[in-house]
């Protein structure tokens, strides 16, 4: 089989409403409080998992995504709505705007030479942003990881546990965090976050 022989599944449904976010049934709405925490889902996002040797992936990622390649542990590189995160020594998570998922996947496949895997996992996970002065307090209740800025600066990515579920956390700014959560744990984490943020108030 030649290197360019592959099939790409178009995961963007043509009929609106067929693909619901995993958070379609959760409780939303504001909870009044002094310094409300923003809990917001970003569902129009394509997720691609890249697996393989960094030396095979680096130049292609730089070329296709116009981003530096995060080869250091726990690092990430982002531009606008495109981001690539270090997950493990041979795994990276790329997120792009939802409508670009297939074209980015094709471009990466064309650009990468060698034994790698690219998997579209958009249907399996979703993204929640935590914002506000007390966003880090909500995380401090929920994860054993030290989210103080000295230990967890902007741009750093960690995979850890939040409540009882696995989650990928990236600091976007002093008081902004991005959580990549699994579909099957999405409503659990959403409920947990709202509960944890109740004392501060919720913008949701």
């Amino acid at each position: 089989m030649s290197n360019n022989s592959y099939a790409i599944m178009e995961q963007q449904p043509s009929i609106k409403g067929l693909a619901n976010t995993p958070l379609v049934n959760v409780v939303r709405g504001a909870i009044p409080g002094p310094n409300a925490v923003g809990i917001e889902e970003h569902d129009d996002v394509g997720h691609l998992v890249l697996r393989g040797d960094a030396t095979l992936l680096a130049s292609a990622v730089t070329e296709v995504l116009d981003l530096a390649f995060p080869d250091q542990p726990l690092s990430s590189c982002s531009r606008d709505k495109t981001c690539i995160r270090w997950i493990s020594p041979d795994e990276w998570l790329v997120t792009v705007p939802g409508t670009e998922t297939s074209s980015v996947e094709s471009s990466l496949r064309d650009a990468i030479v060698g034994h790698v895997a690219i998997v579209n996992v958009s249907g399996g996970q979703t993204i929640v942003h935590l914002t506000g002065k007390h966003a880090s307090d909500v995380l401090m209740k929920s994860t054993s990881y030290d989210v103080h800025e000295l230990n967890f600066p902007t741009g750093k990515v960690i995979t850890t546990t939040l409540a009882q579920a696995q989650v990928i956390i990236r600091r976007l700014d002093t008081d902004q965090f991005e959580l990549v959560i699994r579909r099957s744990f999405a409503d659990y984490i959403w409920s947990w976050l709202r509960d944890a943020a109740t004392e501060f108030g919720v913008n949701g």
């Binding site: 542990p73 997950i87 493990s88 020594p89 795994e91 960690i158 995979t159 850890t160 546990t161 696995q166």
Partner: peptide, 8 residues
């Protein structure tokens, strides 16, 4: 194994 982290 770093089960909830890098899975190595």
């Amino acid at each position: 194994v770093h089960a909830a982290g890098c899975r190595k």
